[in-house]
Amino acid sequence: MVKQIPIASPVRTQAIVNRYFVRAKKNLGQNFLVDLNAVQGIAEAAGIQEGDQVIEIGPGIGSLTEQLLLYGGKVFAYEVDDSLPEILETELPQRIDGEPLSSRFKLVLKDVLKANFAEDLAGFFDLTKPVKVVANLPYYITTPIIFSLLESGLNFTSLTLMMQKEVADRLAAGPGNKDYGPLTIAVQTRMAVDLALNVGHASFMPQPKVDSAVVVLTPLKTPVDVGDPEKFNRLVKLCFAQRRKTLSNNLKTLVPDKAERESLLTNLKLDPRVRPEQLAISDYIALNQALNA
């Protein structure tokens, strides 16, 4: 039996594109990944091992899906493009480790933002065991998907996500970095962030104008206690609303009196003239507690 060229190779991807007359849809943010090293790097960053239950978001024509299966994963995929099921069912390996594809792979045509995981996964995954989420995310919807997964109640051990490098840098940033902001803080209070690998724009077909990166998000054993989450998030967004302004100026709407405002900050050992990106998450927690005391 002739060994099939991986879907992630440019030659195989082009053959699939020609055979099915498929084109990457701009409105869905589609770009086919044609770099086997990058695809295998994603599977390795996710730590995919035999028997892992893997949710994939946006499998496309199957370049990443194929490797997740070959690494030993059992894959449940969400896809919104109804032109792709035939390609996946035909082009993915029909048997993996002696098992038929149907026992290792299931595809549903559904927006993952509308997923009911308990209902969707029942009968295919063992819901008493955790899952791993792996995705090559469309740039335009990366942040909503991240927060949807964080709020879903899904029992996952990690999220391994490829996204625009600019967003990845924001997730991984620390205080004092220009990329540090509300998204950083919202994610880092709940997840450990590991920037696993960079993927250049030449690894895709068609090539996007920007580079990508793979980030692994792992739930913190003990989530950071921010107090009232709604008030905390509102405070952080307010402080970053005008990044070039000082912390004191950004807090005017909450504490109109300048002397009172600066006294509050001084008591917290915070310089009123500091910029919002210079504060650590612990500083924002302390500030939120003081404002709501």
Score class of each variant (00 low, 15 high):
Gln40Arg: 15
Ala77Asn: 08
Ile96Tyr: 04
Ala43Leu: 10
Arg95Phe: 13
Ala43Arg: 11
Ala24Leu: 14
Ile87Leu: 03
Gly41Gln: 00
Leu69Pro: 00
Ala24Arg: 05
Ile57Gln: 01
Glu86Gly: 07
Ala77Cys: 05
Gly51His: 02
Leu70Asp: 11
Glu50Phe: 02
Glu50Asn: 07
Ile57Asp: 04
Asn37Ile: 05
Ala46Asp: 13
Leu70Gln: 14
Ile96Ala: 02
Ile42Ala: 06
Gly72Ile: 05
Asp97Pro: 02
Tyr71Lys: 14
Asp82Asn: 14
Ile42His: 09
Gln40Pro: 06
Ile61Tyr: 10
Ile96Met: 02
Asp52Ala: 08
Tyr20Ala: 00
Gly51Thr: 01
Glu66Asp: 04
Ile48Tyr: 01
Glu66Met: 04
Val80Leu: 08
Asp81Arg: 07
Leu36Val: 15
Ala24Ser: 15
Gln40Ser: 01
Asp52Thr: 04
Leu36Ile: 14
Ile55Met: 03
Ala77Glu: 06
Pro85Asp: 13
Arg19Phe: 03
Gly72Glu: 04
Asn31His: 14
Leu92Met: 10
Leu64Asn: 00
Ala38Cys: 07
Gln40Ile: 10
Ile48Asp: 10
Gly72Cys: 00
Ile42Gly: 07
Pro59Asp: 12
Leu84Ile: 07
Val34Phe: 03
Glu79Met: 06
Glu79Lys: 09
Tyr78Glu: 07
Leu28Ala: 14
Glu91Val: 03
Val22Pro: 08
Leu28Asn: 06
Asp97Ile: 01
Leu70Ser: 08
Leu68Phe: 03
Gly73His: 01
Phe21Met: 03
Gln53Ser: 08
Glu50Ala: 06
Ala45Tyr: 12
Ile48Pro: 11
Gly47Leu: 00
Leu92Gly: 13
Asn37Glu: 15
Leu68Val: 02
Leu28Trp: 13
Leu36Gly: 01
Glu50Ile: 01
Arg23Met: 10
Arg19Met: 13
Asp52Cys: 05
Asn18Val: 00
Arg95Leu: 13
Glu44Phe: 12
Leu36Gln: 08
Gln53Glu: 15
Glu50His: 01
Val22Leu: 15
Leu88Ala: 14
Arg95Ser: 14
Gly73Cys: 14
Phe32Trp: 15
Val22Lys: 02
Val34Ala: 06
Val39Thr: 07
Asn27Pro: 02
Pro93Phe: 02
Thr90Ala: 14
Glu86Cys: 10
Gly47Ser: 14
Asn18Arg: 15
Ala46Tyr: 07
Ile87Ser: 12
Asn31Cys: 05
Glu56Asn: 03
Gly51Asp: 03
Leu33Arg: 05
Ala24Gly: 04
Asn18Gly: 00
Glu86Pro: 04
Leu28Gln: 03
Pro85Gly: 01
Lys74Arg: 15
Glu79Phe: 00
Val80Glu: 04
Asp82Cys: 02
Ala46Pro: 05
Gly73Glu: 04
Glu89Ser: 12
Asp82Tyr: 06
Leu69Glu: 09
Val34Leu: 09
Pro93Asn: 12
Ala77Trp: 00
Val22Gln: 06
